[in-house]
Design a protein around this nucleic acid. Structure first.
Lengths: 379, 379
DNA sequence: TTGTATGCGTTATCAT
DNA sequence: ATGATAACGCATACAA
């Protein structure tokens, strides 16, 4: 068939050499005469030849691709809902301009405020450095298993944000390709892992609250039980309090679900308690920024002043934390570095499959801002 | 070899059926008895079988992958520079916490302020809906050609942000897979294209400046010559002025390069001119937000008040535009929608290769904010 | 430095 | 509903 794509054999024929020789120049294996190389290059762009990754992968047993499994977050479902007629029929040209005075007042951007976008960027960077390409998927519900296995069959290794895959699926995947778990540790698991210093971060943050702001009563606002990152962060919280000789609960007494919506409900309950005469703690240390921002929303609505009436802190360092009112004191995770580190650990694992599992913990940054009572840096 | 991965044939043997039948259940082709299907499923997860995408792609002649070529932007090179020892040897565990009072004062995030992150997100969404996966690459310099062709050989189609690939490379790629150009039109090209209403957006914006703010003198701050998007935007600028009966230049008299850094230099020149007695125009209409933000930087430093002394507007709608001081009036591009639309056009093209090229233009939103003198919405 | 032969794991075609 | 068989396009021993 003339409409067919040119193959390596076509190039070889046109250049008057054997397929092997063509393969050699494609793979830069050397041992090719200058003349042959030139003839082949000419043939390649005369034919517009592009090597088939499928055939290469099949023959060489590796693909040069690494996969990234990201969680799907709150706003993602709601976004991108404005279905148009679709590009299927004809030439869909629409020339419209809308004018708005203030766009997306409370919009929560997806990918966790581009939070995971940063991870992708770091991962892409590391992959590029290693001569690899990346494929990305958000693990959405219908058909999750088929799609994830599909990715597993396509890559040399996968980075999985922990918690995004059911355990059995994860193990199925891991039987085929190396897996690096990102952020969050399930103790005893046999996989490589990249995480951040969750406990140490919160510990330093609380130290600051105790030492520099003299706060003595604390409440931790956690996520649902059994979430490794949350557990770690609470551990740091508790440790700091105990070291300071303050009372510390055995477990979080307030629990959200990482999301701003649920945090608002918790905020409302706190306000209701306040109305009943229950005092607010000196500080509410939240498991993440979204939770803290939700509380901020509610307190602002009820005239409760932060940090004057209560101090609020977060964890993550999402963009919205910096631009919140007041700006949020938080523990910043190096998201891009996490992505990069995960891919670096993965490539190391691919190179040496037998090496025992490694855990890499990245440093975090405590960002002191107004929500804990800090004054803006003197101009 | 026992360390080898199980194949479809292994599954067939264990289930006591032929490879064809196994293939049928994997591909949901139907025509398989319930008994056979059950036996096969059991065999699959007993063996931990995962189909090889390479083999599938080779046999079926399509991969279920679409590629995204993104441009590499200003800050990307500088970011991610903090090389550590690398995870290569041993277990690299570092537990550190740094404390900062205010992080990244002027940080320009990469991916154009996550600008292209939004595109990726939209593309991933559309791909997912179509049962496809995506692979992403920033087209970095060393080895660009090899890497891009690599992607081309791996996918069923590619979305290319226009301007990121040299023309001959683009054509090489396009000889093998369908290509959709994103944003920016090179007239006469034979590819599908997705863009936004550049001209209309700026036109409406200038209309607003003329009608509602009574501005009569304008200057357009463009990008380097021959940039399609910039040309379009200038066209809208000029059209609006002419319609209003105002003087309009034939071409931009001020030119940056899309980046904040160069924009600052332009700003300095403007300030120098002012010192020499040249008046500022009523409004500086910029080709993009970064350019506008650069001007804002310089004017703030020199005590020139925006919008009182001069009005500044942008284009794009990046996050930094919303949080700038003052918030920037701009034309917002629907980035995620662009990504989605591009992939939708691509899948349509893959389905019907012969159809003639389509151009899809997405509506933009004029976001009126303080930098043009608008008052915040009444509470 | 170059060529020959074989097999990678799946789908597709054609039978049955 | 199921099976046999032939590609698919390349890498990789191995031979020359």
């Amino acid at each position: 068939m003339p409409g067919d794509l040119p193959t390596l054999r076509d190039v070889a024929d046109l250049a008057g050499v054997s397929p092997t020789t063509v393969s050699r120049v494609i793979n830069r294996s050397g041992f090719v005469s200058a003349g042959a190389r030139a003839a082949i290059k000419r043939a390649i762009d005369e034919l517009g030849y592009v090597p088939s990754a499928s055939a290469r992968g099949l023959a060489s047993r590796h693909t040069g691709l690494v996969g990234l499994c990201l969680p799907v977050v709150e706003a993602d479902a709601g976004l991108l809902h404005s279905r148009s007629s679709g590009p299927g029929q004809g030439a869909p040209v629409c020339e419209t301009v809308r004018t708005v005075v203030e766009a997306q007042p409370d919009a929560i951007f997806s990918w966790g405020g581009m939070y995971f976008g940063e991870v992708v960027r770091g991962a892409e960077f590391a992959a590029w450095e290693a001569g690899l390409a990346i494929t990305v998927a958000m693990t959405r519900s219908p058909d999750l298993e088929a799609r994830v296995l599909n990715m597993a069959g396509r890559v040399d290794g996968m980075v999985v944000v922990s918690g995004t895959l059911p355990g059995d699926l994860l193990e199925h995947v891991a039987r085929r390709v190396p897996v690096v778990l990102l952020t969050g540790l399930s103790p005893g698991s046999a996989h490589d892992r990249v995480t951040v210093s969750n406990a140490e971060g919160v510990e330093r943050l609380v130290d600051h609250l105790v030492t520099d702001h003299g706060i003595t009563t604390f409440e931790y606002v956690g996520a649902s039980t059994g979430t490794p990152d949350d557990d770690e962060r609470f551990r740091g919280f508790r440790r700091a309090l105990l070291r300071a000789g303050l009372a510390a609960p055995e477990a979080p007494r307030l629990r959200g679900d990482w999301e701003r919506g649920r945090a608002r409900e918790i905020g409302e309950e706190l306000v209701a308690g306040l109305r009943r005469g229950e005092a607010l703690p000196g500080a509410l240390v939240c498991c993440n920024d979204n939770t803290a921002l939700g509380l901020l929303d509610v307190f602002a609505a009820h005239g409760i002043r932060v940090p004057d009436d209560v101090v609020i802190t977060g964890f993550d360092g999402i963009e919205a934390a910096r631009t919140a009112t007041p700006p949020l004191t938080t523990v910043e995770q190096p998201m891009a570095e996490l992505g990069r580190a995960a891919v670096e650990v993965l490539t190391a694992r691919i190179a040496v499959p037998a090496r025992r599992p490694v855990t890499m913990s990245l440093p975090v940054t405590v960002a002191i801002r107004a929500s804990c009572g800090a004054h803006p840096p003197a101009g």
